[in-house]
Amino acid sequence: MYPIRVRACALVVEHDSVLLVKFEDEHGVHYNLPAGGVEKGESVKEAVAREAFEEAGIEVEVEGLAFVYEYAPHLVQDMYGSTPSLHMIFHCRRNQATEPILPPNPDPHQVAVEWVPLHQLHQILLFPHISTHIFENVQNQTKIQYIEEHQLKVKM
């Protein structure tokens, strides 16, 4: 069996800015989309909503799949560790009643939640390095078909 971690990621864009989680550690400052692993008993879309709330303090409506990113360690000399992962990045719309905030118990290196203008994405260190993909996806309003079994009509 090929073990692969599935990560659920929220792409929240408002007023030509993307919501990112800011981290600072011994290597400096970097950013990530609000994201994390899918837990037992939840769908990928449920995980996206949970991660957006846990990491950025916002409630979101998860919309279409923007794109998928795969990390295959053996192809990049374990650049980010040895665990393969598949990142499913979904367009999300923020519930306007919720404001992005640093969570009460953030990751030890998480220092902020910030709106970063799309035209400045190339000026920050974003992991993974998908700034160009985010920019192009938002500009082209691209969505990938995402099919969920529970929404299919079953013929008897």
Rank of each mutant, 00 (worst) to 15 (best):
P104W: 03
V60I: 12
P108F: 01
P3I: 04
F67R: 00
Y80C: 07
E148W: 01
I130W: 03
A8Y: 05
H119D: 13
R50Y: 15
I147W: 03
V12A: 09
F127H: 09
H15A: 13
R50P: 13
K155W: 06
Q141L: 05
T83E: 14
T132V: 01
P117K: 00
A56V: 12
T142E: 07
D78E: 14
R7N: 07
R50S: 11
A66F: 02
E136F: 00
P3D: 08
I101T: 15
E14W: 07
I58E: 10
L118R: 05
K22W: 05
V154R: 05
R5M: 06
V111E: 11
E51K: 14
R94D: 11
E54A: 14
F90C: 10
L20M: 10
L33F: 14
I4Q: 08
E99W: 07
Q151C: 00
V21E: 14
V21R: 09
V138S: 02
V21T: 15
D78H: 03
V76D: 12
V6K: 01
Q77T: 10
A66W: 02
L118I: 10
K40W: 09
N137L: 01
V21A: 15
E26P: 03
L125V: 08
F53I: 07
T132H: 04
F135R: 03
L86Y: 01
F67A: 01
P34T: 04
V6L: 02
E14H: 06
V113H: 12
T142C: 04
A112D: 15
Q110V: 10
E54H: 03
L75V: 08
N140G: 01
N137S: 12
E55M: 13
G41Y: 04
A52H: 13
V6F: 00
L11I: 04
L20C: 10
Q141K: 11
S85T: 08
K22F: 05
Q120D: 11
A35L: 14
G64P: 04
F90P: 11
F53W: 13
F53M: 15
I130M: 04
V29I: 15
A52V: 09
L118G: 06
H15Q: 14
G37N: 05
S43V: 12
G36E: 03
P128M: 05
C9W: 03
A47D: 02
L118S: 05
G41I: 15
H150W: 02
A49S: 15
L20R: 10
S131G: 09
L152P: 00
M156C: 00
M79Q: 14
Q96V: 11
S82E: 13
F23Q: 05
V18P: 08
N140P: 00
Y31N: 12
G41W: 08
V29Y: 11
S17A: 15
L86Q: 13
